[in-house]
């Protein structure tokens, strides 16, 4: 009998190599900035500027990244996402309670996609 899953088609050595390469690539993206700018060297002014400014740009990028598969054209036309994000924003501006805003927003979204926009 031939194996049923992806795993069955590969030898253990192949899997070790494959996962090794993915681990290496992933960790490289994490460690590279710290290797290029080690602690005993002065960080260039431009990089310091980036370090100050990037966090404020990345979070916006991550929000878009989370919503990347949402379609305006196909139903439900991004409505669950739009409504939930609006409610999160209002709730957070009003109560300033991080866990309430996140929990309330996620719960609302689940209700919307499970019961309203099914």
């Amino acid at each position: 009998m031939k194996g049923t899953g992806v795993n069955m088609n590969y030898s253990t050595l192949q899997l070790v190599l494959f996962f090794g390469v993915v681990v290496l690539g992933t960790q490289l993206t994490r460690v590279l900035p710290f290797l290029v700018f080690p602690e005993n060297k002065e960080i260039p002014k431009y990089i310091k500027y980036l370090a100050d400014i990037l966090p404020f740009t990345i979070i916006g990028m991550l929000v878009v990244y989370c919503l990347k598969d949402v379609s305006f054209i196909q139903p439900p036309h991004a409505l669950p996402e739009a409504v939930s994000i609006l409610v999160i924003t209002l709730l957070h501006l009003w109560k300033k309670n991080t866990l309430l805003s996140i929990g309330g927003g996620a719960l609302l979204y689940m209700l919307l996609v499970q019961y309203i926009f099914t």
Partner: peptide
């Protein structure tokens, strides 16, 4: 393997921004 490596770099490239932001 090579394809997997390049794909990994592409998918995780955003980590570079995190590292730069956290250098200090």
């Amino acid at each position: 393997l090579m394809g997997a490596f390049l794909m990994t770099l592409a998918v995780n490239a955003r980590h570079l921004f995190y590292g730069i932001s956290l250098l200090k």
